[in-house]
Design a protein around this nucleic acid. Structure first.
Length: 424
RNA sequence: GGAGAGAUGGCAGAGUGGUCGAAUGCGGCAGACUCGAAAUCUGUUGUACCCAUCGGGUACCGGGGGUUCGAAUCCCUCUCUCUCCGCCA
C-alpha cells in the first residue's frame, strides 16, 4: 500500500512516478472519484452517528430523571433506519476503495532506472570471469542425468512437469549448499536462523504483495484459507504484522531455509527444460526489518550478503538494477543477481534483493516506536541468499569436467565429507 | 477427537445495557525533592480517520454478524489461547 497521505496531497505527482512502471499502474481520476465520494459519505455518516449518540445519551439522562422519553425514542428510531442505509453505502464504498488502493504498486525510488522492461535494467557491477572450456559444455540436465543424480522422468511420473528428483551425491550437494548458505548468513552476516510455516493465510500473502492480483501464482490448500509459500518472505516478513516493535529491537535480521512453491501460471512454454523454472525449489531467504532512515544502506548491505555466497562459491555473476517496468509490485528498488550459466551461455537470475520501504509495513500494519515514542511504519527488505536449486545448476555447469564429473567448490567440501569431486 | 475456561490500552487487570475510550496498578514521559541517583510526591501518557482557524466530531474492548433509541457488557458465529481426557510422529 502506498502512503495515502501522499496520494491525497499530490495525486498527480504520485501518478507521474507510477506511470514509469507502465500504463495503467494508477488511475488518478478513479482515485479522485473515490476520495470525494468517501469524504461526502463519511461526513454524513459521522454526523448521523453524532446525533444518534446524543439522543441515546439524552434518553439515558431523561430516564434517570423519570421523564417521558417517547419523543426521543421515536427520533432515535427514525435516525437508525437512515443511518443504517448510509453506513452500508459507506462500507461498500470503502471496500471498493481499499481494493483499488491494494492493487496500486509501490512508487519506484528515484535511483531506479526508468524503462519499460528488462532491456532497460542497468548493470551495476560484474564479478568473476566466465570459465573457458576446451570441450563441448553440457547443461545441468545432461550433467545431472549423466551422473545419475537428476531425474526428471521419475518426477513427472509422480507429480507432473516442472518437478525433479535428485539422488546420491547431487542430492547431498543440494543439501550442502543450503547448509553452507545458512551458516554463512548466521555466522558472518548477523542473521538469526529461523524456521517457519510453509503455508500462510491470504491476509499474510496480501501483506507482502497483492493477494487479489497474484493469487493465481500460489498453490491453495483445498477448502482452507491457506496457501503454499512461493518464498519464505511470505512467512518471515509477516512475523512483525500488527506489531509495534521497540526501537532498540531494530534492525531484525532473519535467515530462513525453506521450500518454495510456485504455480508458474502464465509461464507455459518458458524454461521448460531442466530445473530452472519449477513448481518446488529450496531457497535461503534473508529478511531485514529496519528503521526507515536506514533501509537504503540496509539494501546495499543485504545485496552484498547475497553476493558473498556467489563469491565464496567462485561463481561469476553480475548485479542488475531493475528498471521501473521490470520491478515487482511491492518493491521500491530491486537488485537482481545473475549467475553465469555456461549451459545457456547467459547470465540468469539467482537472487532478487528488494527494498519495499513502508509498502509492506502499511499492508501488514507493522510499526515500531520511534525516537519520539510515536508508532511509525518499519521498512522491510528481503533477498534470496540464494535460490538453492539454481545454485546447484550453476555449480554443475560451471564446475563440469570433460569426463562428465563435477568438481565440488572448495567452500562446500567440508559439507561433503571432504570430497572434491562428484563422479558417476 | 471429547469436556471446560478465556481473549479489554505498552503490560497486568477491573468493568454484565446509558454519565465507559474504559477504574486501578506497573511501565513510559515531564516536573518537584537531590551535588547526582534511588526512593517519594505531582502531573501526563492509545490508534486511525473526518470537518475546521481555535476547536469539534467519528470509529476501535480478538474477527464477523445480530438484538436495542443506546452494546466492552445480551445473542449467534468464526479464530486463537489455556486446562483436563483420548489418540499419536
Amino acid at each position: 500500500m502506498i502512503d495515502i497521505q501522499l496520494l491525497r496531497k499530490d495525486p498527480a505527482a504520485v501518478a507521474k512516478r507510477l506511470s514509469t512502471r507502465g500504463p495503467g499502474a494508477f488511475d488518478v481520476e478513479q482515485f479522485q472519484k473515490f476520495e470525494s465520494a468517501r469524504k461526502n459519505l463519511q461526513t454524513a455518516v459521522e454526523q448521523a452517528q453524532a446525533s444518534r449518540n446524543k439522543i441515546a445519551k439524552d434518553i439515558g439522562q431523561a430516564k434517570a430523571q423519570g421523564k417521558d422519553v417517547a419523543e426521543l425514542l421515536a427520533q432515535g428510531e427514525k435516525l437508525k433506519t437512515l443511518l443504517e442505509q448510509s453506513e452500508q453505502q459507506l462500507n461498500a464504498l470503502q471496500a471498493a476503495f481499499q481494493d483499488f488502493l491494494g492493487r496500486v504498486p509501490n512508487i519506484p525510488h528515484e535511483s531506479v532506472p526508468v524503462g519499460e522492461g528488462a532491456e532497460q535494467n542497468r548493470e551495476v557491477r560484474r564479478w568473476g570471469e566466465p570459465r573457458k572450456f576446451d570441450f563441448p559444455v553440457k547443461d545441468h540436465v545432461d550433467i545431472g542425468e549423466g551422473l545419475g543424480g537428476l531425474d526428471f522422468a521419475t518426477a513427472a511420473k509422480i507429480a507432473g512437469s516442472r518437478f525433479y528428483v535428485m539422488r546420491g551425491a547431487v542430492a547431498r550437494l543440494h543439501r550442502a549448499i543450503g547448509q553452507f548458505m545458512l551458516d554463512t548468513h548466521t555466522r558472518e552476516h548477523g542473521y538469526t536462523e529461523t524456521y517457519s510455516p510453509y503455508m500462510v493465510t491470504s491476509a499474510c500473502a496480501d501483506g507482502v504483495s497483492s493477494f487479489a492480483k497474484f493469487k493465481e501464482d500460489l498453490f491453495k490448500i483445498d477448502g482452507r484459507d491457506l496457501y503454499l509459500i512461493p518464498t519464505s518472505e511470505y512467512s518471515v516478513t509477516n512475523y512483525v504484522r500488527e506489531e509495534i516493535i521497540p526501537l532498540e529491537k531494530l534492525p531484525m535480521k532473519y535467515a530462513c531455509h525453506s521450500p518454495c512453491f510456485r504455480s508458474e501460471a502464465g509461464s507455459a512454454g518458458k524454461d521448460t527444460r531442466g530445473m530452472i523454472r519449477v513448481h518446488q525449489f529450496d531457497k535461503v531467504e534473508i529478511v531485514q526489518i529496519v528503521h526507515p532512515e536506514k533501509s537504503y544502506a540496509a539494501h546495499e548491505e543485504l545485496t552484498s550478503h547475497a553476493e558473498a555466497i556467489l563469491k565464496k562459491l567462485e561463481l561469476p555473476y553480475r548485479v542488475m538494477a531493475l528498471s521501473t517496468g521490470d520491478m515487482g509490485f511491492a518493491a521500491a528498488k530491486t537488485y537482481d543477481l545473475e549467475v553465469w550459466l555456461p549451459g545457456q551461455n547467459a547470465y540468469r537470475e539467482i537472487s532478487s534483493c528488494s527494498n519495499y520501504e513502508a509498502f509492506q509495513a502499511r499492508r501488514m500494519q507493522a510499526r515500531f516506536r520511534n525516537e519520539k515514542g510515536k508508532p511509525e511504519h518499519v521498512h522491510t527488505l528481503n533477498g534470496s541468499g540464494l535460490a538453492i536449486g539454481r545454485t546447484l545448476i550453476a555449480i554443475l555447469e560451471n564446475y563440469q569436467q570433460r569426463d562428465g564429473s563435477v568438481v565440488i567448490p572448495a567452500a562446500l567440501r567440508s559439507y561433503m565429507g571432504g570430497e572434491e569431486r562428484i563422479t558417476k
